[in-house]
Design a protein around this nucleic acid. Structure first.
Lengths: 146, 146
DNA sequence: TATTGTTATACTCTATAACTATA
DNA sequence: TATAGTTATAGAGTATAACAATA
C-alpha cells in the first residue's frame, strides 16, 4: 500500500507500480517476436526511414558503444536492420530498418502503445487528467534539457 | 512528439517517456550502491522484517527460479541478505535482509521514491490529478487480479 | 508424484581496455 | 590527437533441462 502526504511522491510510486505490472506483457511481446527485451528496445529506437548512428543508439539505450556492436550484430543477423557507412564520416555506421524490420517494429509499436486495461478502463476525466499532467511534465523536461 | 486522439494511449506513451527519462538516475543510484540494476530491484522486493521465499522473489522479478539462485548468491556474498531454511517446509528457503542490507535498501528507497524534477515541479493541481488517476488505475488492477 | 531450489549449459547483456580506421 | 566502432575479456543476467531433497 502506497501512503504519503506528498502527491508528487505518491504519484511517482504509483507510476512505478503501473510500469512494473506491465513488464510481463512487454516480455511476452518480445518473446512472441523472437527478440530479447533489449533487442526490442533497440528496434523501437530506430524509426522507419531514419538513419541512426551506432553511438546514437548507445545513447538511447544508456549503454556503451561496445555493447551496441553485439546487439546490432544480432538484429542484423535476423535481417531486421542494416549497417551503412556514413558518407560524410566513414568512421560512422548508420543503422536503418529493413522491410522485415519495419514490419516487426510496426507490430511491436502497435501493441506497446496500447494502454494496459487499468488505464484503458479509467473514466474519461481521469484519462484526460492523466494525459494533461504527463504532457505538462514531459513538456517541462523538454524545456530544461535544451 | 506524441500525438493521438485517444487520451489513454497518449497518456500511456507519455508514461513510458517519463520512465525512460528516469532510467539514468536509477542506473547511477545502483552504481553508487555497488549493485547491478537487477540486484537493486531484488533488494527492493525484500521488505525489512519480512521473510521472502526464493520462488516468491522469482515471481516478483518475473524470472526463473534458477536465475534467482545466482542473484541471491551475489547479494548474500555482499552480506545484504541471508538464506534461512523454512521450518514448515524444508525445501523452501526464506530470504531476509541483514542490517547492512536494510540500511542500503532504506537509502535506495528514499532516493527512488523521490519524484523526478519534471513531476516534482508540476503545479499542485496536476500533481493531485496525476495521483488520483493513478490511484484509480492501481485500485482497478487490484480489483481484477483477486 | 510433485515441488523448491541448485547445478550444468548455453546464450545474451554489460563495461573496460586495447585496437583499427578514420578524422 | 581525438573519435566511431570493433574485439577481447570478464562478469552478470537469462532460460532450459537434469538433479537432490523434501513433501
Amino acid at each position: 500500500m502506497t501512503q504519503s502526504n506528498d502527491p508528487a511522491r505518491e504519484a511517482w510510486e504509483l507510476l512505478w507500480e503501473v510500469m512494473q505490472a506491465n513488464k510481463p506483457r512487454f516480455m511476452a511481446l518480445a518473446q512472441e517476436l523472437g527478440l530479447s527485451a533489449v533487442q526490442l528496445h533497440a528496434l523501437r529506437m530506430i524509426e522507419p526511414g531514419v538513419e541512426v548512428p551506432m553511438s546514437s543508439l548507445a545513447g538511447k539505450l544508456f549503454c556503451d558503444n561496445s555493447n551496441v556492436t553485439g546487439i546490432v550484430d544480432r538484429l542484423e543477423a535476423r535481417g531486421l536492420i542494416e549497417r551503412h557507412p556514413a558518407e560524410h564520416d566513414r568512421r560512422v555506421k548508420l543503422l536503418v530498418l529493413t522491410g522485415p524490420g519495419e514490419r516487426i517494429r510496426s507490430s511491436a509499436t502497435r501493441q506497446m502503445t496500447q494502454p494496459p486495461p487499468e488505464i484503458a478502463a479509467l473514466p474519461m476525466e481521469h484519462k484526460i487528467a492523466l494525459r494533461d499532467a504527463l504532457r505538462a511534465a514531459v513538456h517541462a523536461r523538454a524545456e530544461t534539457s535544451v
